[in-house]
Every structure is written in structure tokens, then in C-alpha cells.
């Protein structure tokens, strides 16, 4: 089991109801999908569908599910989009 790292998740759209940033702790080496699982625990299971229909992103782009988180970092959670 890796060391514990802190992930700061910036909130957009429907996630604004939980604040501008949600901090969670995971083990280094976790997959991006495991961050989403930790997020569901943080905000409550009734928001599971919202989290599962959303994606995590860094400043470069959307993270694939198999993205491995090695160190503490800032990410964003992007719910379904509706621009224009």
C-alpha cells in the first residue's frame, strides 16, 4: 500500500453545491476511478450517478480511468456539459 496523498478536486457545475474545492486522501498509485469512488464516499452515495457520469481532468485534459495518481495534485471534476 502506497503513502497517503492529498487530491484537491476543483468543482464545476452541479458539484458547486459541495463547495469550490473538495479535498480527499487516497493511496499513491491509485487509479483515477478510485478517486471517483473516494469522492462518492465524501459527498454521499445519493450523488453516485452524478459522479459516475462525470470525469476527472488535469490542466492538460480528461484523465482516462486507468490514469495512475502518484503524488498529491490538483484535479477538476467535470459533470455532463451543456455549453453554448
Amino acid at each position: 500500500m502506497g503513502k497517503t496523498i492529498k487530491i484537491s478536486i476543483k468543482c464545476f457545475g452541479m458539484f458547486r453545491q459541495f463547495g469550490n474545492v473538495i479535498d480527499i486522501e487516497i493511496h499513491a498509485g491509485s487509479f483515477a476511478d478510485e478517486i471517483k469512488s473516494a469522492l462518492i464516499i465524501n459527498i454521499g452515495d445519493k450523488h453516485r450517478n452524478l459522479v459516475e457520469s462525470s470525469v476527472l481532468a488535469n490542466d492538460v485534459g480528461i484523465l482516462p480511468k486507468e490514469y495512475v495518481i502518484q503524488d498529491s495534485m490538483n484535479l477538476s471534476i467535470l459533470p455532463p456539459v451543456c455549453g453554448g
Binding site: 488535469n58 485534459g61 480528461i62 451543456c82
Partner: peptide, 25 residues
């Protein structure tokens, strides 16, 4: 109310971000 929208999950499958083990691209 926040409006519902289009999930970006499909875009995640085609992401330009790598696996996280080897750099940013």
C-alpha cells in the same frame, strides 16, 4: 437549477492525457 448535459466519459476514452506513469502526454 443546473441543467443536465452530455457526459464527457466518451472523450475520456480518447483523452490526450497518458497513464500518469510516464509524463503529461
Amino acid at each position: 437549477d443546473w441543467l443536465p448535459g452530455h457526459s464527457l466519459n466518451v472523450e475520456a476514452q480518447e483523452s490526450l492525457v497518458c497513464c500518469g506513469r510516464c509524463g503529461e502526454k
